[in-house]
Structure formats: structure tokens, C-alpha cells
Design a protein around this nucleic acid. Sequence first.
RNA 1: GGUCGCGUAGCUCAGUUGGUUAGAGCACCGCCUUGAUAAGGCGGGGGUCGAUGGUUCAAGUCCAUCCGCGACCA
Length: 939
Amino acid sequence: MAEELKDTLNLPVTDFPMRAGLAEREPVRIAHWERHGLYGQIQARAAGKPAFVLHDGPPFTNGDVHIGTALNKLLKDAILRYKSMRGFRTPYVPGWDCHGLPIEHKVMKELQARKQSLDALGVRKACAEFSAAYIEKQRGQFKRLGILADWASEYRTMDPAYEGEILGGFASFVEQGLVYRSKKPVYWSIPCQTALAEAEIEYKDKRSHSVWVAFPVADPAAKQLAPAHPLSVVIWTTTPWTLPANLAIAVHPELEYVEVRHGERSFLVASALREAFVAACALDGAVDGFKVKGRALEGLQPRHPFIDRASPVVLADYVTTDAGTGCVHTAPGHGIEDYQTGNKYGFEPYCPVRDDGTYADDGKVPAALVGITVLETDGKNPANIAVLELLKSKGALLKAQSFEHSYPHCWRSKTPVVFRALDQWFVGLDRGDLRKKALAAVGDVKWIPASGENRIRAALEGRPDWCISRQRAWGVPIPAFYSPSTGESYLDAGVVRHVAQQVATRGGDWWWAASVEEVLAGAPIPAAWPKDLRKGTDTLDVWIDSGSSHLAVCAKHKDLHWPADLYLEGSDQHRGWFQSSLWTAIAVKGSAPYRAVLTHGFVVNEKRQKISKSDGKPQTADDYVKKYGADIVRLWVASENYQSDIPLSDAIFETISNQYRSMRNSLRYQLGNLYDFDASKHAVAVDQLSPVDRWVLIETAKLIREVTDACERNEFHRAAAALAGFTTATLSATYHNVVKDRLYTTAPDDPLRRSTQTALDLVLRAYLKLIAPFVPFTADEAWSHLHAKTEYVDSTNVHLQDWPAIDARWEDAAGQAAHAAVTRIQALAAQVNVPMERLRQEKKIGQSLEAAVVVTGDAADADFALLTAHQALLTELWIVSSVQLKPQAGAALAFQVDKADGVRCPRSWRWVPALVEAGRFGMVSPRCREALLAKYSQL
RNA sequence: GGUCGCGUAGCUCAGUUGGUUAGAGCACCGCCUUGAUAAGGCGGGGGUCGAUGGUUCAAGUCCAUCCGCGACCA
């Protein structure tokens, strides 16, 4: 009998599964989308509409897609899907950053492991293959995340046409006189005879000499110093071999320095380091003399201990009192800080060390040192030993001792590297007012968040001239020429342009493969150039590569426009891509390449620390996609406030998974209850909808407003929070819960049931569109079930819909009134629930339907009046069997809950005073009898 | 060390121009339900709003300093 009655209910029917199985289902849906050319359909649908160009920052092609890279791409994808639903054309051309040292480094390591060595062309070929292989991998991983893009048009910085654009842009730099050649210290590997980049350095512990060296001051009175004895400024260094290149001594302007008297000599050191100095050099019985601020020492002229020149005192903020004497040996040709200080004071980056590591005979290096190598083998450094000898003979060496410290080593030869000034190419950022123009352009861009503007400004203002040459093979060649006899360099815009054209068709390899004659054939060679020239072997800094993408992509692709509407990358790109793109755009086009720049933070672990390999946690996007599915990863991205750090942990993914399940369950409920609903036949007019249905439509309107507002502000986590709240509170706990009774127990065509189905249908359609940018797989899956009761449908796709609109009729006066009433009655439910819960804990009732409610209150009380006016709604909204209103003058509103009297209807489970006969269905409540009669016409 | 940013319940986030006992969802505990069921409902516990000091009648909300974390520099 009970089974039979259950069969008379209109229970939900749907094939939309509760269990998502995202890891298995999503790839099938991707294939479905690709088969239908979803990206193309989306573009075609918006043909003629204004374009929203989000220009893709190219990920580096040297590994699997990192979870942070995935976050970036998913934010872009969500924005584009949203914008397309808002009526924009959203062409999206993804890119790949292919050149650069990390790839060359990896490739060289592999070659080394196989004991192979290759020339530049061979290395380039291996790098190109490496890069291409990772493009394939990454593209697959991006597609798996549900990224929709014009993959056929993707740009790659190693493509000949792209390389041609880079060089074309570079030609404009040269033409405007922005490019110059100058010396700058770089890491140098002596055995490899090559410059190294940061990534090619390994830090290892090393035992070095540390020495205290006295620089005699001939004329202390020039700075109003009155030492008791002949004065020396004392420096401390761990690289004695750089002393021949010493050009200055740096002191901190704010530090205090003190005269230390010992024997017949006076020494000048920082007061804070006086004790350490006296102890290290065993100056027993030393006494202090005058004290002086570092600032006052500027311009003092100590003499170099073994070369006949002055080593003037200069000021530098980086001088510390951690170690040494507070007087820092400064060799602008052997250190970056030294170089910068040297620049400030007009010293050349003097470097008497040749490529092979030996001292040059330049007329300044003492004869005793010429030809001696600075390369350390077996812990012995011939240059250090020779320099120490020299210092001793001059009486300048106060102390030498061993010193253990971490020191950079060449990753290939494993020998200590040296810092050595080499000729490099630079872009002069203040030439042609480039910096001024760039700073001005910053003001025309919308920075999101606004603090990004300060960051880019600081980066632009603080940046020294841009060193754009790299002594590497895997990159775009710098089309410069050199005279073998004089070493003079030759760079000309016309020639660069000629090379650019050739490279655009032949590829960068051509530069290496062709002879000088071939390279210059047909080029407009300046008359002043000598006949005898060789090609340069340097490549361009890869930031020029990616920084030229707006020229090579936005300005070229027919669907796009220049400048782009939006750049969206991690906040580290203020010093990277945002900046390099701005420089190239200012130089070539005179304005910024983007209208707006949106930045996000970095993925961190539960301790808010950067995700690192030592965590032992998975770091690639695929790890998470395989475990949770792309929609979960996407929902995580949407839920986080990406403007600061973005935490990632198993606990967070569990929470997100729960939220997802909640959404999915609501979808299943709605789809299941719409199985026999056809809007064209059954829809109820808005003004005829029941109050609770009008209520949910207004709630939906509020949701649409909230999500839309959040999306317009790019604050997707607010959208996600609003959707989560709507799902659990508005739908699951309230609307779906309340409306179950009428959906299940009334006759299929009951106006009340059709009213609710009408609302459910409207809510579901809006809801699916709202979640589509964030969980596109699930949204489209449900959309298929809604339209065709099947998993895949060819005729329609949620991503081809317009963003949901609010029907003005939902919010008319009657709707507002119904909404207000239902909202208040719902709020009062909390007061019913408390006493009801007490009965339940006492095991007196179970389901809320077993309860009968009595409300007492003054008839004039606003709430009591409201309940009286809407008495018909109360049992349904509170999900109880009866509600009795007892007006009582002067009484406060009170809710009393008891176990319901009467009998329980076996069909509706409601308690009624008495059951009635319903033929073959037995005894049921009067209301159920009517429903059965309506459904079966015969009982 | 410098610049910028962040720091509200176990987790993810709200807290508008300073103003009632600091909120939501998830998680947790208890009860109910088994006709949304690898679901659902109800009730409950839980926060000295990073710390300290200050401005104010009133501060999570403004100011200062410090601590922690991150990014970029050095």
C-alpha cells in the first residue's frame, strides 16, 4: 500500500547524476565542444559587436602547467566567458614564451649528460625542439582546464614572423638612438670563457682569504682630519685578486668612523666595527682618536697600496656593519654595487682581468701580477697569493686569514665564478625622454588594484639602463657587427630592419648559419662601416621578446586591436612583462599597449608561504585536475580573492568540493522537478505566481545584480560567495525545502505546482548562466539536461547565451509585497524552530510535519497582522501540519509548538483531523484525495 | 635591508564614508529525516577582528610602532 501511494507522487526524475565524475566526464565535454567549434561559435555569435581584447601573457615553455599558471589562465577564461555573455566579441590568442636561459640551461644539461657538445645552431635546434614539446604539453593541459582560445592562431616567440617583429621593434629603438654599448660586470666562468646568468650559478661553500688592507692617506688635513700618526683607511675583502681593479673606497654617509691609534700608525674604520678590527689585527693597546661621520669623508684621497693612483672615498648606502671595517673596497669592474657606485662617481668599470682569467698588461697592473690567473684550482688562487705578497712588501697587509662563505660557482665547470666587466648593449631609458613618456603613459592606464600604479611607477623610476644583450645562443640575435681589428661595434637601424625581414621568413637560425656577406647582402650598409666585419653572437634579453607581443600579436591579428583592453598577470610582472611591454610600446608607438592592467597574487600553502617543491605537495595543474576535476579547480579560483595571496590546501579543496556538491545537488533537484514541465504549455504568468514563487524570483533578481556587480568589478570571489549563499540558504534550506510538498503531492497540473515549476525554470536558466563562467563543464551539462534530458545536446550551449536579465515584472509592486511577506514569515520560522527543536530533542516529534503551531499575539501587532493576512502560507513555509493564530489583546508575540493531533496522511505525511476514503488507494487526507482524483480521474 | 601588499571564527570570505550584543558559507557537535538520499532539515558551540600604543563620546573600521607572511628589489 505505502509503495503504491509513493508511486502516485510527482517525485523528481532526471538522469543528471549526483556524482559528478568530473575527471572522467570533462574530457568528453571538451571533445564535444571542439567537435562543435564552441570557440568559433562564440565568436561568430558576437560578430559585429565591440571587441574586448584580453592579451595573453605568454607562459614560459619549460615545464608542465603550474597551478599558479593555471590560476592565471582560468581567471582570463572566466572573464572572457563573462564578457562574451555580456555581448562582447572576445577573441583570445594565447601565446608561448620560448626563448631564454632556463631552457638553454636544461638542454645543455641533457646534452652534457649524453657527453654531447653542440655549436650554437645545434643548441638552438635542441632548444626549439624542447620548447615545442612543452608547448604541446601545456596546450593540452590548458585545454583540459576548459580554456577556450583561438589555438590555431597562438603566438610563439620563436616563430620566424614573431622574431621578425621583435627585431623590427628593436630597429626603432636603434633608429631613435636609444641603444648604446657599455661595460658592465657579469658573472664569468673562466674555464668556459662565457658569461653566466643567475640561473647558471650554484652557490657552494668556499674557503677564501679575507684580508685587512691599509690605504694610506697622504693629506688628511684636506678633510679637516687631524690624526695622531700617519693615517690609513682600512678595507676588508674576501677577493684580494680584485684589488688591482680597486678605484675607490665606499663608506656609509650616516655611519660614524673612528681613528684607531696603534704604534706609529692611525687607522680609520667604522666605530661599530672597531673592536672586531682591533681584535682581528691584534692591535693590542690601540686607543681611539677623532670620530667623524662617513659623509664628511667623501672626497678623501687615500692611495692605492701598490698602484700609483688615488682610491677616493665615496658614499654608498649598502655599506653595512655586518663584517669588515665599514670601508668597502670598490672595484666597479668586479661587482654590481661597485659598478653602480662607480657610475654615480664617473669611474669606468675597469677590469684588468682577461677572458682567460689572467691579469692583462695594461700599463697599470704591476709587472709582478701580469699573466697570473685569478682562477682558483684545488683551493689555491695564484692571483690572491701574488696580491698578498705585494701587499706585504708594501706594508699594507694588516692581517690575512681564512674565511668560509657561500660563493657562486659555475654550474658547468664547478669553479668559482668571477665578476668581470664586459661590453654589453643597453637601452638608455632617459634618452629621447623615454622614461618621462613611459611614466606619463602610466597615468592613462587603469590599474587594478589601484596600487599597481605605484608599483609600476617605482619600477620605471628605479630601473637603471636596460641591459639587453645576453651571451647566449637561444634567443633572437642582436644584429650588431664588430671590427676584428679594432673591436669597434656597429649597429644600424637600416641593417637591423634588413635582418628583421630576413629573419621573419628564414628564422633566427639564419643569423648563425649565414656568412657576414650573406647577412649583409642587399642591406643598406652605412658608408662609414669598414669592409672587414664579423657578426655578433649576443642575443636579446627575452623580456624584449615577450615585451614585443603587443606589436607581433595585438597590432597584427585581424580579430584584435591595439592597444589591448586588458593585461592580466601576477603582480611580479610590474617589473617584468608589464614594464617591458610598456617600454617597447612607448618607443615604437608612443603610448601604453594596454588600457587596463589587472594583477593577482601568488598561490601559497596553508601556512601562507610560497608553494615550493620541498612542501612535497603537487604543484602542477594536472595533479589537481586529475584528483578533483577542472570545475573544482575553477571554482577554487573563482572563490579566492586573488588580489592578495591565494591559499591552496587539501582542506580548501574539500570545502570547495562541498560547495560544488551543494550546487550540483540544487541543479539536480531543479532538473528533476521540471521533468514534466514545458514552459510553452505550462508556464504561469508572473502576476499569477504564488507568493513563495514571486519571492524566489526577486531573490534571483538580487543574485543576478550581485553577481553581475561582482563580475564588473572583477571580484569573482564575491560572485562565488553570492552563488554559494544563494545555493545553500535561498534554494536548498528555504525554497526547495518549502516547495517540495506542493511539487510532490499535488496533481501534476495543479496551478500551484505549475507556478513553482515556472519559477524553478526561470531560476534554473538564470542560475546556469551565472555559474557558466566559473564552472563551464557543469553549467553546460545541466543546460543539456534541461533542454534535452540528456548529457550532450548539439543544438544549444549555455556559453552561447546572453547574460541573464531581470524581468521587470518580477519586481512589480505585487511581487515586492509578496517578497516582503514571505521574507518576514521565513524570519519568524526561526522562532518556531527553537521550541520545535526542543520537542525533537525530547523525542516527542521527528519531522517538522508532526508539529502543530499556535501563535498568540496582539491583533494590532505588525507581525501578528502579517501572519493573519497570510495564514494560508504558514503551514507550507514553516513545514508544519497546522498553524493556529490566537489573537490576545496586549499579548507579546509567542510561538507554541506541540505534537500535532489527529492522524497522519500516509501519502502527504501531514497530520489531519481525519482521513477519507480514496478507493484503491485507501485512506488519505482530503487534499490528497483531490490530487489523486485529478491525476487518475478514477479512484 | 628597501619598496609594495596582506594578516576578521578550524577553512574561504563579507564587514560601505568609524556608531546597536562582529556576519555568511563550509567544517565541527547534537537531533531529525530516508519521497533531493554518495542527498536534505533544525538547533548549537566557536572570534580579546596579528600585537602594542594613540585619536575619538564611540575603532575590525583612522594614526603610529612592532610582529608574521608574500611579491619585487638589494
